[in-house]
Simulated scan of single mutants.
Amino acid sequence: MTNDPINPKHYAKIQGLTLEPLIMEAPYFLGAAIKYIWRCKKKGGAEDIRKARRCLELHIEGNPAPPYGAVKAANAFLDKARRAPRTLQITVIMRLLVFGYQLDGTHRLPALLESLDTLEKALKRGAY
């Protein structure tokens, strides 16, 4: 089937990495930001990056405590992603996870916002 509404192509694996484990237990707005970044190249382009940025703002405002399962899934994703060649898209998702779950104990918002800007500019000029 070419147009599968249950498993759309814009949520397909990226370099062998899957989306579902990352968002199953994620806080709502963090999960939404991850989904927008995941699909940006195949669906919404730069607009998806703007939506992800807004979801990140809402996540920061709410400051929800991440469930254990979400942190476990994020760490598993990060472990796999660190061992694979990375695209800009995967790098942004990795930074979003580290910031969103505060996995390394440092404040990484400037680096994350810079990565979002870089990805948005690349999408706008068709370089990504």
Results as ranks from 00 to 15, higher is better:
42 K>L: 15
42 K>S: 12
43 K>N: 10
43 K>G: 04
43 K>T: 06
43 K>E: 13
44 G>A: 14
44 G>I: 12
44 G>M: 11
45 G>M: 12
45 G>S: 11
46 A>P: 10
46 A>W: 13
47 E>D: 15
47 E>H: 13
47 E>N: 15
48 D>L: 08
49 I>T: 09
51 K>D: 04
52 A>Y: 05
53 R>L: 13
53 R>N: 15
54 R>A: 12
54 R>W: 08
54 R>S: 11
54 R>N: 11
55 C>A: 04
56 L>E: 12
56 L>S: 11
57 E>P: 01
58 L>N: 12
59 H>M: 09
59 H>S: 05
59 H>K: 06
61 E>W: 10
61 E>T: 11
61 E>N: 14
63 N>E: 10
63 N>Q: 07
64 P>I: 07
64 P>G: 12
65 A>V: 14
65 A>K: 15
65 A>N: 07
65 A>W: 00
65 A>L: 09
65 A>T: 15
66 P>W: 02
67 P>A: 13
67 P>V: 05
67 P>S: 10
68 Y>W: 10
68 Y>D: 13
69 G>C: 09
69 G>D: 15
70 A>H: 05
70 A>M: 07
71 V>K: 12
72 K>S: 11
72 K>L: 10
73 A>C: 00
73 A>V: 01
75 N>G: 05
75 N>P: 01
76 A>T: 09
76 A>V: 08
77 F>E: 05
77 F>K: 08
77 F>N: 06
78 L>S: 03
78 L>N: 07
78 L>M: 10
79 D>E: 12
79 D>I: 03
80 K>S: 13
80 K>V: 04
80 K>P: 03
81 A>P: 04
81 A>M: 06
81 A>H: 07
82 R>L: 07
83 R>D: 06
84 A>F: 08
85 P>C: 04
85 P>K: 14
85 P>Q: 11
85 P>R: 12
85 P>W: 03
86 R>S: 03
86 R>M: 03
86 R>I: 01
86 R>F: 00
87 T>E: 00
87 T>N: 00
87 T>R: 01
88 L>Q: 00
88 L>I: 00
88 L>G: 01
88 L>D: 01
88 L>S: 00
90 I>H: 03
90 I>E: 01
91 T>N: 01
91 T>E: 06
92 V>M: 09
92 V>W: 08
92 V>D: 05
93 I>D: 14
93 I>V: 15
93 I>M: 13
93 I>Q: 11
94 M>K: 07
94 M>H: 04
94 M>L: 01
95 R>K: 15
96 L>H: 06
96 L>F: 08
96 L>R: 04
97 L>G: 06
97 L>S: 05
97 L>W: 08
98 V>N: 02
98 V>F: 03
98 V>P: 04
98 V>Y: 05
98 V>K: 08
98 V>W: 03
99 F>P: 00
99 F>W: 12
99 F>Q: 09
100 G>F: 00
101 Y>E: 02
101 Y>D: 00
101 Y>F: 15
101 Y>A: 00
102 Q>A: 03
102 Q>D: 03
102 Q>W: 01
103 L>K: 03
